[in-house]
Design a protein around this nucleic acid. Structure first.
Lengths: 301, 301
DNA sequence: ACATACTGTAAGCTATAAGCTAACAATGAG
DNA sequence: CTCATTGTTAGCTTATAGCTTACAGTATGT
């Protein structure tokens, strides 16, 4: 079949509906000439006479009535389709698939996702925790939360917050707590985070000008942040962890910040999404909520 | 709602079907550029992102999947519609409404219509006998059979046969049978057919040059042909009747032709139909059958 | 019976949209 | 790393949707 022009079906249906080329043209917002011509072309396409025209009346032929019945179905279906889409556009709905790393996902995103799902009942949230960088398109991920530093960029990203890295030690690690200068750390037991590109090389800063680079001693290396935290809490040694992971433990005193007057590079937290022309409302709404909530919690921190 | 471009739905559906702009373009027989552009415009029309494109893959968004489901329905419906029409075009089907005058309809058309209905089981025949000239369009008449002489002409017509008018008298009307010249008739009792324009004025011809015009005596006037026939058979007088009405009676001897060597004007039998661009097959088929059968029966006559 | 207003179509034109070619950036396969 | 293939962009041509004007035919109103 050689694909007829669907728009002409709409024109034809309008003529049958209104019983007049002139009225159909009015409804369609074009001139009757065009309607007449387009319907004539449709008849040529179909090699069938659809309407019997008198100057005063227009009546469908039998073929015309058959086609009209189909057109009604088609047009209703099309209309429903765009209605459905505009509803979908207005209110977040459907499934929102969020990808996030285990650590940040569990501690920060999960509660927010729960709040989002409650706020928009028509929207189901599917939070996928994984430290592997997911293929957004293949896995149908709507938003991926990335902690750290962005590299590739065919994707669009929005910075939703930031984090500081803190050098911490278990409260009983007196040697570490006694350190006064970054260089003092090189000899201490250090738990490296294998997920980082340079797990041992750390850039310390104090004020605007004081910079030190220290290479830690390779002792234990663990490739996920929660496990590094656990090992640190267990007394395995010093480690560098993001603030959102250690805040509780610093508050309770189980961990102690080492060299608090020195800062380590801070990173960004980004929401990353495929470069689609029009962002689905569920994504827009979720990212908006993220930004708001995280700004608030960082203010308290 | 401001009527979106339906053709673009077909393009979009092709992309989702094939999973590729390039393949969709191939299937549609256009370039991928156009597909890309048209789908992009559809997205603008709908203010929604339908596809997530990587250079390597194309995946529908959630809105895209929703729309695609609708498109499948729409396209199937459209395809069915044209299939239905081309089937309808190939074989006569549906209702064929025929209008005909009582006399010719009953004696000639009715048997042919019966044969036609038998020949095409998918086609129902509705034979409407009436001597009033019907409004073809208003009454959904597909073919109107007209006996005599055509006047108006917004309609299309095809001559399917002809008839001769015969001057007849009942077998016991010896005065009429004794007539030798047309002029002898003026004094005889004559039954006029009021349905004609000039019921009394008759043009006789013999050979190529002999012409006579005779005005009959106004005696009885009846405005339908069958009634004229009945009156004639009852011995009311002479009358002029079409050959298809009197053939049987001439054969049985109940009527006798008067002045058989003189001929009266012959008329045409026409099939008349609305001026539609493409004639429905049922009409074409029926008229073809008419022409064939009537030629055959006139040959015998 | 006659003028009139309105019907659908035809003809000729304009502008827009559909379509093509060529070139490009991105990406995955080998 | 190279190369083929993907979808998009840009620039252009062609087709066609659409408008204006004009016309023939027909109901309708007077």
């Amino acid at each position: 079949m050689e694909a007829i022009n669907l728009n002409r079906l709409a024109y034809f249906a309008a003529v049958v509906d209104t019983g007049s080329f002139t009225k159909a043209a009015d409804r369609l917002g074009i001139t009757k000439t065009v309607v007449s011509q387009q319907v004539a072309r449709l008849e040529v396409e179909l090699e069938t006479s659809l309407l019997i025209r008198t100057t005063r009346r227009v009546e469908p032929t039998e073929a015309g009535r058959m086609l009209y019945a189909r057109c009604v179905m088609i047009l209703r279906e099309a209309e429903d389709a765009v209605d459905e889409l505009s509803e979908a556009r207005a209110e977040p709905m459907g499934v929102l698939r969020i990808a996030a790393p285990h650590d940040y996902g569990a501690s920060m995103i999960a509660p927010l996702a729960a709040g989002f799902a409650r706020r928009f009942p028509a929207c189901t949230v599917d939070l996928v925790l994984s430290d592997a960088r997911a293929d957004l398109v293949a896995d149908h991920i709507d938003v991926s939360i990335r902690v750290g530093w962005l590299d590739d960029s065919t994707l669009q990203a929005r910075r939703i917050g930031s984090f500081r890295q803190r050098l911490v030690a278990p409260a009983n690690q007196f040697g570490a707590i006694a350190a006064r200068e970054p260089e003092d750390l090189a000899a201490l037991p250090f738990i490296a985070n294998g997920a980082l590109r340079e797990p041992l090389l750390w850039h310390f800063a104090r004020g605007d000008f004081d910079r030190r680079v220290v290479r830690m001693r390779q002792g234990l290396s663990i490739n996920t942040t929660p496990a590094v935290l656990a090992a640190t809490l267990a007394g395995g040694g010093l480690s560098v962890l993001p603030d959102f992971q250690v805040a509780d433990h610093l508050g309770s005193g189980r961990l102690v910040e080492v060299l608090p007057e020195w800062t380590l590079p801070s990173g960004g937290i980004h929401a990353v999404y495929p470069a689609a022309r029009f962002r689905p409302p569920k994504v827009t709404a979720f990212v908006a909520m993220l930004v708001e909530e995280i700004r608030r919690s960082e203010g308290k921190r």
